[in-house]
Amino acid sequence: MLLVIVDQDRGVLDELSLQAITFANSVDPSAPLVGLVVGASGREVADTLGRFGFTDVYLATAPDLNDYSAAACGRAAAELVSTLAPTAVIAIGSQRGNEILAHLGAILGLPVATECTSLSLGSPTHVVRARWAGNLMESAELHGSPAICSVVSHLAPPAAAMNQTALVTEFFPNFTDTDLAGQVRSRIAESEGGTSLADAKVIVSGGRGVGAEGFGPLEELAHLLAGTVGCSRVVTSAGWRPHAEQVGQTGTKVAPDLYIACGISGATQHLAGCRNSKTIVAINTDPDSPIMAVADYAIVGDLHQILPALVAATRTARGI
């Protein structure tokens, strides 16, 4: 049996978690899949999870648990592990998925392999996992049972819905005060409107080569392609653009349909954040820059000449 942790936020299913289901199925197609949803707000999510192939779904609730808490999710998973004895516990390698597994591993005293791309269960279990945010792959032995793993996001497609239902069982873990203390207390709306980086289908991203005053054409192009503007770490460190726009290992990891890297040399930590884009276009004066190694298409030249002309050509192509 494989236990998959499915994240939800105030009753909305985390779409990335559906990738963890696909991954779990690839690990052992014959093993029954059991899902865990935490929080009473996840009741409807739990009720609909059967269509993704779960035989059983467990819903962890408590009167004092009103919002997301990583520690509470870890505690709920630990209780399920002790009653169900799954061979593996799998979550998506998102911030939430990884931190929930870290709590689970700490509670059970077991190792956790985050950011896995492959998992062969056994004694020991063999994993392949991403180090350096995917710039280096590690083969490792994972000792102990269950195997606790998160899967690299955007590796597997989301699980497809089928005409199927699961038995949903509510249970009441013994949350500690510390588990409950870690709940989200409130939320503040981000000041910038528009599309967030993580959700954008098109990202026009700028690096050092753009310059402090050079982001106008990038914004125009992003607007024409119904996308948003991103940037590299150099740009946010220099204070040219807000941190929320930073793409990279330490900013936001993105996977848009189109990523246009303008004046970005392609430091390892930046590539880690954009490598999963479906199509990458580089506009750079240096044909040997590292960004070229991950780009599908490139224009070699000065972005300050190319971008205004590209904006005009895109405008014409769209007939506006």
Binding site: N135, E138, Y297
Partner: peptide, 30 residues
């Protein structure tokens, strides 16, 4: 308990890049 055995550089590093052109000549292809 999580014991590293070996490391490798992923294959996606170093994919074929199609150069569309130099300077503004690449724009229509883009």
């Amino acid at each position: 308990l999580l014991a590293k055995q070996s490391v490798s550089v992923p294959e996606s590093v170093g994919k074929q890049t199609k150069i569309l052109g130099s300077g503004p000549e690449g724009i229509s292809a883009l």
